[in-house]
C-alpha cells in the first residue's frame, strides 16, 4: 500500500467504525464472555483517536522509504506497537470508559481480531467497493 496521510485517516476511521464495530459487538454484548462490557467500544475509540496521531508519525517515517510505501509487515508492527502503547496507558493511567482491571487477554484477543479484520477489509472490501481508493492513497471520500 502507498497511503497518504489523508488516506490513512479516512480508511482507519471508516473501517474502525464499520468492520471494527461489527467485530467489537459480540465482545461488548457479552456473547463471547460471561459479562457484557461497553469498554470494548471505548478501546475501539482510543485506537481511532490515538491512531490519528500515530498516522502522522507513520506518514513521516514513510518519507524515508524510496517507494513511499507501507507494506503489510509495517502495518503489523504498527498495530503491535499501538496495542502495546494502549495497554500500558490503560494499566498505568486511567482511561475514561475502561476499568483499570481489564483483562489483558481479552484486550489482546479483541484488539487482534479488530486489527486482522480491518487489515483484510482494506485489502479486499475497500478495493471492491471504492474503485478509486487505491489510486488516491487510501482516500475514499
Amino acid at each position: 500500500m502507498t497511503p497518504t496521510l489523508l488516506g490513512r485517516w479516512q480508511t482507519r476511521l471508516l473501517l474502525l467504525a464499520t468492520i471494527g464495530a461489527f467485530v467489537t459487538s459480540p465482545f461488548a454484548l457479552g456473547y463471547l464472555r460471561p459479562e457484557a462490557s461497553f469498554s470494548f467500544f471505548w478501546v475501539l475509540g482510543y485506537v481511532a483517536i490515538f491512531g490519528i496521531a500515530w498516522d502522522i508519525v507513520y506518514d513521516y517515517l514513510q518519507k524515508f522509504r524510496w517507494d513511499r510505501d507501507w507494506p503489510g509487515v509495517l502495518q503489523l508492527l504498527a498495530g503491535i506497537w499501538e496495542a502495546a502503547f494502549l495497554a500500558v496507558i490503560l494499566k498505568i493511567f486511567h482511561l475514561p470508559g475502561i476499568p483499570q482491571e481489564t483483562s489483558l487477554f481479552w484486550f489482546a484477543l479483541h484488539y487482534s481480531l479488530v486489527w486482522l479484520s480491518v487489515y483484510i477489509s482494506a485489502q479486499v472490501i475497500m478495493r471492491i467497493l471504492f474503485l478509486r481508493w487505491r489510486f488516491h492513497g487510501g482516500q475514499w471520500l
Binding site: T2, R68, G137
Partner: peptide, 12 residues
C-alpha cells in the same frame, strides 16, 4: 518508478 507514483503521495 517509485511505487507511490501509481497511487500514493508521489502521484498527487
Amino acid at each position: 518508478w517509485p511505487k507511490a507514483c501509481w497511487g500514493g503521495e508521489l502521484r498527487a
